[in-house]
């Protein structure tokens, strides 16, 4: 099996994933994915046109609960792990110019 390079623009995908990669990481991942895709391409051997997709394996449909208000997490507990907050809000760096 040859490790053909795959059709992936890693910089673009990393942008979609909001994940900064170094050049070394990007190059290493590209080589590793080329190897992995020698397996993944095996899926192209199968004719699956008429096969339904399985997203989950248990016979569950939409699950509804009773429309009753119950206590939820206290605000202080919800904010307790936040890196930064102000009053009742999570605080982030600026979002808009």
């Amino acid at each position: 099996m040859s490790n053909k390079p795959i059709d992936m623009d890693i910089a673009h995908v990393a942008k979609l994933a909001r994940l900064a990669l170094t050049d070394d990481e990007a190059a290493q991942f590209a080589a590793q994915f080329a190897h992995l895709f020698t397996y993944i391409r095996q899926l192209q051997e199968l004719d699956v046109d008429t096969i339904p997709a399985t997203a989950q394996v248990i016979p569950l449909r939409n699950v509804m609960r009773d429309d009753i208000v119950t206590p939820s997490l206290e605000r202080d507990a919800a904010l307790g792990n936040a890196p930064d907050w102000e009053g009742p809000y999570f605080r982030t760096p600026r979002i808009l110019e």
Binding site: L43, Q44, L46, V48, I51, P52, A53, T54
Partner: peptide
């Protein structure tokens, strides 16, 4: 495609 093979 992977989800379909999961069915198989």
């Amino acid at each position: 495609r992977a989800q379909k093979v999961r069915t198989l």
